[in-house]
């Protein structure tokens, strides 16, 4: 046995393991700064809302279309949990007669430094039939999201945000609703259930109340907009974002339609 070679081998293994540990340490997830507000602690001293003259407000509505043949919805196999019963198709693309549902529409730009009151009423996210209702949700930053479990099985709600705090909580059947909020603006924040891998939905956190989600008829409406020049963003979980510029005058009602082309494979 050659001692030098033996020690070289041991040193090599040790160095390789150290490199692995360094890699793990370097790639640690970015922590939320202690001084910044967290999901449970929205900024306490929010500035007063900028007044809007109700006599001049305008509205924007429209229809979002899917420009192409409707993709076939993949089937979900829920047999792993007898407590899961219901529709078994994925909601990635919900297209009815060319109308595209679950598109989040919001005023992306043009509101300047305006601030808005956060609604005191919570937004409800329900788990029923081992699916999230709704599939796409809009909420203002700091607004309460009330998560209910109406299934006879345990769910495990796990949002995986980029800019907000991540959490992961179990919710047994008949347990009280979980109340959470998200402090920072974030579009298409994914939420999954660790227990039922097909359960996915998206929460959109915005700073203004000017947002909507298209229904099965592809329609949306945003009311109460002060007159001005705006960029309206249409965001779909798979098809991405498309923007349109629009100018609304006082008491205007503008129709802004949008269409998405099928995603490139």
């Amino acid at each position: 046995m050659n001692k030098k070679t033996g020690w070289a081998g041991i040193t090599f293994v040790v160095v390789a393991l150290c490199a692995l540990l360094v890699l793990a340490a370097c790639s640690k997830k970015e922590e939320t700064p202690a001084s910044s507000p967290t999901a449970e602690q929205p900024a306490a001293s929010a500035p007063a809302a900028t007044p809007i003259d109700p006599a001049t407000v305008a509205s924007i509505n429209g229809t979002v279309k899917f420009d192409g043949p409707a993709p076939k919805a993949p089937k979900i196999d829920m047999s792993q949990d007898p407590g899961c019963k219901g529709m078994n198709e994925a909601e990635t693309y919900v297209v009815t007669g060319g109308d595209l549902a679950n598109v989040f529409v919001y005023v992306k730009d043009g509101l300047g430094n305006r601030t808005f009151d956060v609604p005191k009423d919570p937004v409800v996210l329900d788990q029923q039939g081992c699916r999230y209702h709704p599939h796409v949700l809009g909420v203002m930053a700091g607004q309460t999201v009330q998560i209910k479990n109406d299934d006879p099985t345990t769910h495990n709600i796990h949002p995986t945000p980029k800019d907000n705090r991540e959490w992961n909580e179990s919710q047994p059947p008949s347990s009280p609703a979980i109340e959470k909020n998200f402090a920072r603006e974030e579009i298409m924040l994914p939420v999954k259930c660790n227990q039922h891998p097909w359960m996915k939905m998206y929460i959109n956190v915005v700073k203004s109340p000017f947002f909507a989600v298209t229904g099965k008829d592809g329609k949306y409406e945003i009311k109460g907009l002060p007159p001005g020049d705006y960029t309206i963003a249409f965001v779909h979980e798979k098809l991405g974002e498309q923007d349109q510029k629009v100018t609304v005058a006082a008491k205007d009602t503008k129709t802004v339609d949008q269409s998405f082309k099928p995603a490139a494979e």
Partner: peptide, 22 residues
């Protein structure tokens, strides 16, 4: 499972075997 070293609050109690929990 969201907790550790316990599993849904228990060390060895068998949980409801659903999906990835098993």
């Amino acid at each position: 499972m969201p907790d550790w070293p316990t599993s849904f609050g228990y060390l060895i109690k068998v949980p409801h075997f659903v999906g990835g929990v098993r």
